[in-house]
Nucleic acid binder design. Structure first.
Lengths: 187, 187
DNA sequence: TTAAAATTGTTCAGTAGTGCACAGTTGATT
DNA sequence: AATCAACTGTGCACTACTGAACAATTTTAA
């Protein structure tokens, strides 16, 4: 991607995040984003069609970053729920979320937080299907595969919301331990 | 000035400052500046001819900022050495210098610090000629005007170097008081 | 309700940045 | 001395950003 495009994109995301942390999504005007990002009007519209489009793109970008490492290291790490270090991928994701706190809190606390959550669950589902449930023996449940996937990703998302609401007091490792303690026994 | 030009200029200055704080002027290559600023090679050369040129421009910019407020408020403030609040302009300048610490320390500690100092003295001289010596009666000296100007600006520059070297421990107000205590009695 | 002010979305000619290539110079290693 | 790698400075076609204008909304205030 052209250096200029990337810079402009970053500037818009940065501006949007800043604005989101101080006022609600619907109250933010495109003009404000343009001013905060310090770009020309036509430049904004050459990147995004609407404010919703911007939000959608930002979520996509964010998650692809959050999940990219986890997905790329697939070969070198054992991220499955079975094995020596079960669910270490969750720790990875929690770290990324914590490091992106500024952006994520901004998005989550806006009226369109549900959009963010939809993306989050979608990515999580993919991840869990690809990595986690492989090689795990079903012990205590006869529930179908897709039910379990939904259960794991849903629980995780709810936990993350709780974590953020409580100012991320727990460390990623600690939180991952708690999570495994309520997930591992039932699958 | 075109928005893009200003951004590029800022990026180059920022990159240059960053590099100056970690390595010496002569060891810095233009390529490094280009990489750190994240711009294209031809872009750099459309802004500056050489590294020296960049340094010169950066000094000029810096001082025009440092001195701009002092010069612009000429009408509203009494910056003369005579009057109620003698030499309050010095406090102003010291504040600006402290707030630009990052840039200035970088420039001063490089081999071309003398270039910076030359600019500094030049600006100071202008300022002192325009504002400070007006309306001050010569009491204890028969020395000519330009001698006094050089004495005041020279002393100030030396003081600033001392201040920076000692990590700017004193507040601008405190330092300005000291300065006046050694300048006012003799003119 | 009406007027003024602000925001939106689009167009377009002009300008700055990009990225690549190139030849020439410097500098370090062997 | 010779080689290799990195840096320098310039040129150019291509592309993204600019800024100003414009009509059409929407918001705000009176």
């Amino acid at each position: 991607m052209d250096r200029r495009q990337q810079k402009t994109r970053d500037a818009i995301f940065e501006a949007f995040s800043t604005l989101l942390s101080s006022k609600s999504y619907t109250k933010i005007t495109i003009q404000e984003i343009i001013d905060e990002a310090n770009i020309g009007r036509s430049t904004f519209y050459s990147h995004f069609e609407t404010k919703d489009d911007l939000l959608k793109e930002m979520c996509t970008d964010l998650f692809s970053h959050v999940f990219s490492e986890s997905l790329n290291t697939e070969k070198t790490h054992d991220f499955s729920l079975a094995g020596d270090n079960p669910g270490s991928m969750f720790t990875h994701i929690l770290y990324h979320l914590r490091d992106n706190k500024k952006n994520i809190v901004g998005i989550l606390t806006c009226e369109s937080g549900e959009l963010f959550l939809r993306f989050f669950k979608q990515y999580l589902n993919e991840l869990i299907i690809q990595h986690l449930l492989i090689g795990v023996e079903r012990k205590n449940t006869t529930a179908p595969e897709d039910f379990l996937v939904n259960h794991v990703s849903g629980s995780f998302v709810e936990m993350v919301q709780w974590w953020i609401k409580n100012n991320m007091k727990q460390s990623p490792e600690e939180l991952a331990r708690y999570f495994l303690s309520v997930i591992l026994p039932i699958i």
